[in-house]
Design a protein around this nucleic acid. Structure first.
Lengths: 353, 353
DNA sequence: ATGAAAGCGCTAACAG
DNA sequence: CTGTTAGCGCTTTCAT
């Protein structure tokens, strides 16, 4: 057992070569598993590697190969369960193929998103999984196109003419939610959304409205969209309720909207599902332990990650063909926050303080 | 405006040199901001850079400098708000100093933790922020020591003899929780913990117990610790209640324990705070919108990140001195899930279904 | 089967 | 002030 000085230079391939009495080229071959090396030398190399605790420098290695075994992942935020587990899955899948995943957060800023992408390009990543802040037409996607980067767009995207896309089938899910709600008798429903993600949100909304009206033409669907931030949504919602509007159910198109809705219900002393029903797009662990448990659309995170990495590596491998747009099915979990209108004990009005 | 072919090789420093009619060395100097270059050439270089859309390859650059401007961050999971925002903060701080942050998840596995660390070492990261799965004595910390890596340990750590540590002052926080609970009249309190993190959990527990007994010697503090997973904790808790134990308050030492407690309360039809009070270590966004809002100890994520990066960069900069152990103060948010025992309308027993 | 040599993209030392 | 040279750690011809 050799005890190296703590801050000693790490052994390089030449140190191994010297120690084994062969050339660096041979060491390299052995380490790549090239078969044309004399067994005896193979052994000597392995011994030397062991002795010195040698490990190849993957970055130097990639530099020479002109190809870096790095995948970049960009998400709008690290803080949510959804993107958190997305990164976990992507990391797992990248490592499975011998690549390292480098994750970064755009912090919901398109400007930053583009900067990060530029940095990933500087790093010569082999491919990028991008969950854009807004949609597939953002500056980041443009940057990727212009620079011939290979990448996959996920989550807040529909189809794209240059990149493969993978996302949850939120359109079908929204229709399913509409059905659940209408079948329970709801005829006045409020939908909450963040307008930034334009196309996706609009698609969810339209699908919801269409299905609701189709099942019950007298259904009234109100909509509150906020352009970019969640706070405007909160005040709009507050105003909406203050005006005396009393939908029997709320469908939030995104997680933080669900929190906003819950918090406004609190303010007004409304309880789910007696006073109002609530369904949120995007599930979270806590939603099943609160009382009432919150109904939610569960996105197939794992499946999205798998498909995204799958197609990404196919493109990296040189596979051609037109971009494909995959949609993975969601699950709709109707939990206790959803009931039938008018069946609650105090459905007549609020009882705040 | 030049329109390069999508997959053309990226311009290298030599391309810029050629285009500008100077040597690569000069280009490098200009780009480093070395002052001793003729203004005219500076201009020519910048023009060429602009023209070709050149950007330095940071990895190649680092290779030559024998120092990589990369910081590694290792956390047990990406899925939680706590570690999610920790990564966000660390990323921000690293970038501020011109470093890239490479984050990885150990997925609560010490074996994997060590592997990742080895990979980071292979990458020659300048420093590592490690949130160990268990504590400061794990194999990963040992690996860092043996290899002379520079790093900071955060979160599930107390002091260490080789690395600086930064964590939330959970000991003081636990004492504060004890005081809040005892002052409200609680004399039978259950503490929930995950035993893995040995020292930290024990410290929280002891501090809680000590303060509780000091304020009210007749206080009974029960403890349920699970060794490694959260499921055993769930069944232990279930058994505990099934035996007829009826503490008036529960203090969970970690987030998922809070979820487990809530879910068991649900099963038994108990409501907070009337039937039982609940305080959790670790806050989450949803805790303030549920009804009741859940009392929690808020960890100073941002502060921990700042201190960790600060000391890390000082060490990277060569600053010596003995390792320091920083403790950042928590906030204790007593929300609606905490009340006084015996004041609820149905404090006599459960009312399930 | 092996090693010398070249070179990935870059920077640092040193002459000029 | 500038360019030449050398080389970071590695892989890959290409002779031998």
């Amino acid at each position: 057992m050799v005890h190296r000085e703590a801050h000693a230079r790490r052994p390089s391939i030449h140190d191994v070569a010297n120690s084994a009495g062969v050339s660096a080229a041979t060491v390299s071959k052995v380490l790549q598993g090239v078969a044309t090396v004399k067994p005896e030398n193979v052994q000597r190399v392995f011994d030397a590697v062991e002795l010195l605790g040698y490990r190849v420098d993957p970055l130097a290695s990639d530099l020479r190969r002109a190809k870096r075994r790095i995948i970049g992942a960009i998400v709008p935020e690290f803080e949510s369960e959804f993107f958190g587990s997305m990164i976990t899955q992507l990391e797992r899948l990248a490592e499975q193929r011998g690549y390292a995943l480098v994750a970064a957060s755009s912090r919901e800023s398109e400007a930053r998103e583009k900067e990060i992408l530029a940095r990933m390009h500087d790093w010569r990543v082999s491919g990028v999984v991008l969950a854009p802040v807004r949609n597939e037409h953002g500056p980041a996607a443009g940057f990727m196109k212009k620079n011939g980067m290979t990448g996959v767009l996920i989550d807040r995207v529909l189809a794209d003419d240059a990149f493969d896309t993978v996302s949850a089938d939120s359109v079908s899910a929204s229709a399913a939610v509409a059905r659940e709600l209408v079948e329970r008798g709801h005829r006045h429903i409020l939908v909450l959304g963040l307008g930034e993600q334009a196309a996706t949100v609009r698609a969810r909304l339209e699908s919801f409205r269409e299905r609701a009206l189709q099942l019950a033409p007298d259904t009234r669907v109100d909509v509150i969209l906020s352009e970019s931030d969640v706070e405007p949504l909160r005040s709009s919602l507050r105003d909406y309720f203050a005006k005396g509007e009393r939908p029997t159910a709320v469908y939030s198109l995104f997680l933080r909207g669900t929190l906003v809705a819950l918090s406004e219900f609190r303010r007004r002393g409304w309880h789910c599902p007696n006073d109002i029903s609530l369904v949120g797009f995007d599930d979270a662990e806590w939603m099943q332990v609160t009382w009432p448990a919150i109904a939610a659309v569960v996105q197939p995170v794992r499946q999205i990650a798998i498909e995204a990495m799958d197609v990404l590596f196919r493109r990296i491998g040189g596979e051609g063909g037109p971009p494909m747009a995959r949609l993975e099915p969601c699950k709709v979990l109707m939990r206790e926050s959803v009931g039938s209108p008018g069946s609650g004990p105090h459905s007549g009005g609020g009882k705040r303080q």
